[in-house]
Design a protein around this nucleic acid. Structure first.
Lengths: 243, 243
DNA sequence: ATCTGATCTCTGGCATACCAAATGCCATAA
DNA sequence: TTATGGCATTTGGTATGCCAGAGATCAGAT
């Protein structure tokens, strides 16, 4: 049997505890392009422009100062995300979802969030649950959400993301984030509506209460019904948004 | 007012009803490579091999007979799916999920499936719901699932997919399919276990009954609890699968 | 025999060139 | 004026080639 090379305890020097942080991985152009394009697509308010939005590989590569290769890889990733659709020899089109698709996504969101609520009742710490109220501390009887729609809208999203995070389930977090990215596009035009905003805050507080009470079934139900309510709202009032 | 060009009835010739079928879109090498690699990864039984499985761009391009470009694009897509992770200058590694991640995924699956069940009680047709029983028509008191684990396992997956499909929600269908692809890898080693298989069939039938009764809450609960049961099972007995 | 480091090799990242199909423009014929 | 056919252009698809960093290898010094 050949001598096995000693692999244990070879520390010649104390491996100085200088905070070595694994150096910067320097993200590739591919990833930079992906992030840049994703952000650009998300902020372009797709549902506001009447005609189809197209992307051009060569134009993008010039704009970003890199060759087409990393751009194409980024496009391929975005296509997996469902943000764009490339048509051979025709172009790359930014996908517009129909109202039905959006409602569908919101329902999935409701499913995931209600599961998060369920998990939270059994694992989250009391203080973390209570901290969820802070997102709405700037609103109350003397400062109604419906009078500060834009601000409330941001608090609303932040609340939902914080809620899901409390589940400590990476999968639930990632999936809902993906959905939010798709839904966010016209969120300003729907969730922002005053009539719905008014009922939103009380529902959120009710969810928090159920979580604090560790009432699994009730928390799940409230979380689900709250988001399903949004789905129903969009289904009923979102018609005008989709030409 | 300028004369509007006549767009109606310009048929110069009868547009011969020769069966023109829109020709074949001939999927690109990029997509072919994506499908090929995905299938290869799914059937390689990742959790069976002890050492990390690596992929090599050049080797793959030779094997598939195409250049590296479409291969790289396919890899980028697979990375978005979470099947592989490319490490610069090191290689492309096929991702192995931890037990915790798998349990987490199954919980998300439970959330989505319970929402599907909920929707089904309000929209699906009676005959379609009843048809779900067909997946298990080959099993019964005289032919127990636990005695034909492999066969039952396939029926099991088919049942769940058919169930979700009945919700007529493309989003729920796609998301659960994605999850199933990740979970399927070691499914054979867990769901296949006899002790769990025995309780599976009755639970499935109970779900179908609730759906037929149009009992939204009950159907949702049964669907959720059934899949959460699998999650709990994996969490408790799946330890040995993850080295 | 072991440690050091120069070098060779392997691997993904990126740039570039060329291809082919889908369009659009435009000269030309009816 | 209008319909038609062909050519130039546009756009994504694919193939190649070179680069740089991370390891592995191996010779030389201690």
């Amino acid at each position: 049997m050949p001598a096995r090379k000693q692999t244990k305890a070879p520390p010649v020097m104390a491996e100085a505890d200088i905070a070595i942080v694994r150096i910067a991985p320097e993200t590739s152009f591919k990833n930079k392009a992906y992030e840049a394009l994703k952000e650009a697509i998300l902020k372009m308010d797709i549902y506001a422009t009447p005609e189809q939005v197209m992307l051009d590989e060569r134009a993008l590569s010039e704009r970003l100062g890199v060759s087409r290769t990393p751009i194409r890889e980024a496009i391929a990733m975005l296509e997996q995300d469902g943000f764009v659709k490339t048509v051979p020899r025709r172009g790359i089109v930014v996908v517009r979802r129909t109202k039905t698709e959006i409602v569908d996504m919101i329902r999935a969101w409701a499913a995931l969030e209600s599961m998060a609520a369920r998990l939270i009742t059994t694992t989250a710490r009391k203080k973390d649950i209570t901290a969820l109220r802070d997102f709405f501390k700037d609103f109350g009887k003397d400062r109604l959400p419906q009078d500060h729609v834009e601000e409330y809208s941001k608090a609303n999203i932040a609340f939902h993301q914080a809620l899901i995070s409390l589940s400590e389930s990476p999968v639930l977090v990632d999936m809902t984030n993906d959905i939010l990215l798709h839904v966010r596009g016209y969120r300003q035009l729907t969730i922002g509506r005053k009539d719905r905003t008014a009922t939103s805050l009380p529902e959120h507080l009710a969810i928090i209460e159920a979580l604090e009470a560790r009432d699994t079934e009730l928390a799940e139900k409230r979380a689900r019904d709250h988001t399903l309510g949004l789905a129903a709202y969009v289904e009923a009032h979102g018609q005008e948004l989709f030409s």
